[in-house]
């Protein structure tokens, strides 16, 4: 009886262990295959040159540039907005006020909305309503702003990443010790002065974490930009807000599903995927490191 128990136990533990290592194995497999598939093509030249031959050869620089530009613009919108909202929630709002609870609820809900919905909103609101409206009012109906472009795409993305920023910054602000705020107030500091001189500098790492996590998501998400501004082949880099842009994730999607000669472009596809993976990995790692240092400081 005891032996039977023993065996059952070992089997059970074995099954759980197997599950865990199965997951790890698949992850490693994925990484290995991507690396193998892409390492031949991956090179400095690949990263810095333009595509040639109708995407059959060449590099992916415009995709990298477009992705970078997208996340920079997205951050300019999302980080200040999210930070200020987080400041409001922690410093100005009473825990039970209606506005505070509504904002918290809305932020939580926003975090769970599927990313494609943001794309819908971007199309219907930013492009058609705002952009179309701008065209009607300023350009007499001529079509310029009522189209997909990098401006609308980055605004769409900023909505997607807003919850991430708010949550990270809130965590960091709460980590600033109460005693420091009291010290400032006891010296005759006003609320705003305390926030400006003590709280915000003290939550710098949280703001950084939030920004990096937002950037990481913004670089990897494709669904919201499918129809708000991403393009597959552009002859030139975007130079104005009304231009479209290329994007790493979008590039992978189109190339792997719709390119004319999938076999020939396969190495480029793998290499591009590798680039995207490396990018998100480095970003996430940086954020995790900063965050764990923040948590250790708070203890």
């Amino acid at each position: 009886m005891r032996i039977k128990n023993r065996i059952t136990g070992l089997l059970f533990i074995g099954t759980t262990a197997f599950s865990a290592f199965l997951i790890i194995a698949v992850i490693i497999l994925l990484l290995v295959i991507i690396i193998i598939g892409g390492k031949e093509t991956f090179s400095w030249k690949f990263l810095t040159s333009f595509p040639e031959d109708g995407m059959m050869k060449g590099g992916i620089f415009p995709a990298i540039y477009g992705t970078a530009l997208l996340v920079v613009m997205m951050s300019i919108a999302a980080v200040p907005f999210g930070t200020i909202t987080a400041i409001y929630l922690t410093e100005y709002a009473s825990e039970t006020s209606f506005l505070a609870q509504t904002i918290r609820f809305a932020v939580r809900t926003l975090a769970t909305v599927p990313s494609i919905i943001f794309g819908l909103f971007g199309l219907g609101f930013f492009i058609k309503f705002v952009g179309g409206g701008m065209d009607n009012v300023f350009l007499g109906g001529q079509l310029k702003w009522g189209q997909p472009n990098i401006l609308w795409a980055s605004l769409t993305m900023s909505l997607l990443t807003l919850p991430v920023v708010i949550v990270s910054v809130e965590e960091a602000i709460r980590a600033v010790p109460r005693e420091m705020r009291e010290a400032s107030l006891a010296l005759g500091g006003t609320k705003w002065e305390t926030i400006r001189r003590i709280v915000i500098p003290g939550s710098r790492s949280g703001i950084m974490t939030g920004t990096i996590l937002a950037v990481s998501r913004g670089a990897g998400e494709v669904a919201p930009i499918l129809f708000t501004g991403a393009a597959y082949y552009l002859a030139t880099l975007p130079t104005s807000l009304s231009d479209q842009f290329m994007n790493l994730g979008y590039h992978i999607y189109i190339m792997s599903t719709q390119s004319a000669n999938v076999d020939q472009t396969l190495p480029i596809q793998f290499a591009t995927t590798l680039v995207l993976l490396m990018l998100t990995f480095m970003l996430n790692l940086t954020a995790v490191v900063i965050r764990s240092r923040l948590r250790r400081k708070a203890k």
Binding site: P177, E179, M180, E182, A183, L187, I198, P201
Partner: peptide
Amino acid sequence: VGMVFQKSNPFT
């Protein structure tokens, strides 16, 4: 009216 606290709380 200034105040000094129980546990010193210097700013970083």
